[in-house]
Amino acid sequence: MIPDMILFILLAIVAVTSALGMLLSRSAVYSALNLVLNFGTVAVLYLLLGAPFIALAQITVYAGAIMVLFLFVIMLLGVEQLRKGSALPWQQTLAIISGLLLLALTAYVIFIRPMTLPQVSPTQLGFGTPGAIGEILFNKYLLPFEVTSVLLLVAMIGAIVLTGKREPKTKT
């Protein structure tokens, strides 16, 4: 139990620090790298919770594909240095207020109305394996799964239509 706790605390420190670094860094590249580190730490947390599939999918999809594309765009557009001050001044106040609200809500739930989570039964321990996830995904949650894939397809077609070359209209 104690080694688990030490590991968890170390991971939590890295996760929170990298999240803060991502928010506070003035360089877009360092922000992106902090986010990659954060994704990696969260993946290890998933592993500790006995969900290897989601952990490795997290690294492949988020750290491996999405963040690489982010870095690609940042470098291609040459927007490594953020300008001083925000473009939307009211955004900062709003963010502080909503952040404080979330903090207050969490504190209320944890300290004033403590809830106990149901204990995980030993038979459920294999829930994170690829086989178990596939079985649930293609039987119980087939419809949501298919709907999500259609949604992604629509987004993809939308991106292609928006960026596609248009024929010049002067030809007629």
């Binding site: 290897p52 490795l56 999918a57 690294i59 492949t60 750290a63 491996g64 594909a65």
Partner: peptide, 11 residues
Amino acid sequence: VGILYLTAVTS
């Protein structure tokens, strides 16, 4: 999840 490990590391 061996193959997922491979895809994660290659990515």
